[in-house]
């Protein structure tokens, strides 16, 4: 199955058709998607600002990351679920949209980065990683998630 035929299949799915045919489903799902993105941004910033030494200086980084992790995963699940729903309703339009592919590139990079590099640094930030690298890891994390948001908004301009 080619990428194009996968997109065609998604566009013709019962879910995509139901969302397209409803007047209210798309805006409601989009609003939940946006709130999910906002919460994700807030959670990422909370931890990344701690990595940069700008918040909660007395809280150990690893302990903070452990407490935030379930929220991060839950919010990501909401974002991905609502994102897939929105995607199926306009899959063919998105196939030809450059901003959508940019957003997907940022999203995959952000998820992989969050659960590999950033996770490793969060576990070892105060012992084995030089402060300058810790700050860089936080800045890259913020930039990647900002890229996801900007890519999403840019979809409407293509």
């Amino acid at each position: 199955m080619s990428v194009l035929s996968f997109f065609q299949w998604c566009a013709g799915s019962a879910l995509g058709t139901a969302i397209r045919d409803s007047r209210w489903l798309f805006p409601v799902i989009e609003a939940v998607h946006l709130l999910g993105l906002a919460l994700m941004g807030g959670l990422v910033l909370l931890v990344d600002m701690r990595l940069m030494g700008l918040s909660m200086p007395r809280k150990p980084v690893a302990a903070l990351a452990r407490e935030i992790q379930p929220w991060l995963i839950g919010t990501l699940a909401v974002m991905l679920t609502t994102g897939v729903m929105l995607y199926t309703s306009e899959a063919m339009k998105l196939y030809y949209n450059g901003a959508f592919w940019m957003k997907m590139a940022f999203l995959v990079s952000a998820i992989v980065y969050t659960f590999t590099v950033r996770r490793a640094v969060l576990a070892a930030a105060e012992t084995r990683v030089r402060p300058v690298w810790v700050k860089l890891v936080a800045l890259v994390s913020i930039a990647l998630w900002a890229g996801v948001g900007i890519g999403g908004r840019a979809i409407g301009f293509y």
Binding site: A38, L39, L45, A146, G149, R153, G156, F157
Partner: peptide
Amino acid sequence: SVPLNGVLSGLHLVGLTLLVGSVLV
């Protein structure tokens, strides 16, 4: 300028995300 509109809209969303995300947390 469509690109300028895109950049401003992106910034608007980043600001909104920062604002609402901070309120949520």
